[in-house]
Simulated assay, not measured.
Amino acid sequence: MRQSLSCLLLISALLLSACGSPLPRSADGRGTITQPPRAVSGEAAEVVMYAMSLIDTGYRFGGKNPEAGLDCSGMVSYIFDQATGRRVQGSAADIARQGRPVPREQLRPGDLVFFNTMNRPFSHVGLYIGDGRFIHAPSTNGRVRIENMSSSYFAQRYEAARTLLD
């Protein structure tokens, strides 16, 4: 119960901080807005909350549910099915083909982030939760957890972002 309350408070803080995030700036740094920010939908909040509930779930290659364990694509499929009723299937690369591209500077909670972790494109996927962080199911240390996109490992391997949300 206490962990559940902590997760709910963290999600609320992340979503509120997204509302107060600075507007995107131009590459010249003069403050020109390049694109309007993308709003966080209620559906995105549901997806993030569901993802947060899976923290510490065990890893299993090919895993599609928390009871048996989850791999990265299984985690994303399970979250979207449970939180939105959407059927998302296949590998991380297959899931990347199902989404619409999102510029990195326009990421919002609920978007998917893709990495090249196995020397092949789109070999790992996670769910962006805001504030430069994402949830994923890594095989290393075998538990669903939150990572920072700016960590040296993930910053070097970031490939793209996609959204499955409206």
Results as ranks from 00 to 15, higher is better:
Ala93Asp: 05
Asn119Gln: 14
Tyr59His: 05
Gly130Leu: 00
Leu112His: 01
Phe80Glu: 00
Val102Gln: 14
Ser53Val: 02
Leu16Trp: 12
Val76Asn: 00
Ala45Thr: 07
Thr34Lys: 09
Phe115Cys: 01
Leu127Ile: 15
Gly31Pro: 01
Asn116Lys: 10
Gly99Ser: 05
Ile135Ser: 01
Asn148Ser: 14
Glu147Ala: 08
Val113Leu: 00
Phe114Ile: 03
Gly31Arg: 03
Pro36Lys: 09
Gln156Asp: 14
Ser151Asp: 13
Arg60Ser: 05
Ala160Met: 10
Leu10Pro: 01
Tyr153Glu: 06
Glu67Pro: 08
Gly85Leu: 02
Ser91Thr: 15
Thr57Gly: 03
Thr57Cys: 09
Phe122Tyr: 12
Ile11Pro: 00
Leu9Phe: 13
Ser151Asn: 14
Arg120Val: 15
Leu5Asp: 10
Tyr128Pro: 04
Asp111Ser: 12
Arg133Leu: 01
Gln35Phe: 15
Tyr50Thr: 11
Pro37Arg: 14
Val88Gly: 10
Tyr78Arg: 01
His124Thr: 09
Tyr50Glu: 09
Gly110Leu: 09
Cys72Glu: 00
Ile79Cys: 12
Leu70Asn: 02
Cys72Leu: 02
Ala160Ile: 07
Thr140Met: 09
Asp81Ile: 04
Ser139Cys: 05
Phe154Glu: 00
His124Glu: 08
Gln82Cys: 06
Gln89His: 15
Arg157Gly: 09
Cys72Trp: 04
Leu15Ala: 10
Tyr50Ile: 06
Asn119Pro: 08
Phe134Asp: 00
Ala39His: 10
Ala39Met: 05
Phe61Glu: 14
Gly99Cys: 10
Lys64Phe: 10
Ala93Ile: 02
Gly31Gln: 10
Ser73Asp: 05
Gln106Ser: 15
Leu9Cys: 13
Ala44Phe: 13
Arg162Ser: 04
Ala44Asn: 12
Glu147Phe: 01
Glu67Asn: 06
Phe134Lys: 02
Phe154Tyr: 14
Leu5Ile: 08
Glu159Val: 07
Tyr128Met: 04
Tyr128Glu: 07
Arg143Asp: 04
Ser91Arg: 13
Glu105Met: 14
Phe134Arg: 03
Gly20Ala: 13
Arg108Pro: 07
Arg25Lys: 13
Val125Ile: 02
Cys7Ala: 13
Tyr59Pro: 02
Ala13Leu: 15
Asn148Met: 08
Tyr158Thr: 06
Asn148Leu: 03
Gln106Ile: 09
Ile33Gly: 01
Val88Tyr: 05
Thr32Ala: 03
Asp166Phe: 07
